[in-house]
């Protein structure tokens, strides 16, 4: 596989993630969409790291840290969703509309 193939794949992943994050009603699905976007970025880092960059460590370290931060993010988001679910008994974004005018 060439660099272009990887970049194309990550662009597709990113677009799918963005679409999911914008269109899904279930907050868990939204979270998965955002994770896909971050994974697309990770894939980019790894692909560039493999094909075009001389220093092999930087991209891999970056990706490891992305994974760590994404885990922290998921923990926070899930705890907020869980709290919301206890109140509303739903995690459907459409039906959580206390604020909408």
């Amino acid at each position: 596989m060439t660099l272009e193939m990887y970049l194309l794949l990550s662009a597709v992943l990113f677009s799918l993630g963005l679409f999911a994050a914008l269109s899904q009603r279930n907050l868990i699905a939204v979270l998965i969409g955002v994770e896909l976007m971050m994974n697309a970025a990770s894939l980019n880092f790894m692909a560039f790291n493999r094909f075009s960059v001389t220093d092999p460590a930087t991209g891999q370290v970056f990706v490891l840290i992305i994974i760590g931060l994404a885990a922290a993010e998921v923990a926070i988001f899930l705890s907020i969703i869980l709290n919301l679910y206890r109140q509303r008994h739903t995690i459907d974004a459409e039906s959580i509309t206390e604020l909408r005018r």
């Binding site: 976007m37 970025a41 907020i80 109140q87 959580i96 604020l99």
Partner: peptide, 26 residues
């Protein structure tokens, strides 16, 4: 209920913005 809702709205958009930033960084 209010805290969860406003935090969720803020966080979903914040996560998306930072993922977009990250993609740009790559």
């Amino acid at each position: 209920a209010i805290g969860g809702e406003s935090s969720t709205k803020y966080m979903v958009q914040g996560m998306m913005a930072s993922a977009v930033s990250l993609y740009g960084m790559s």
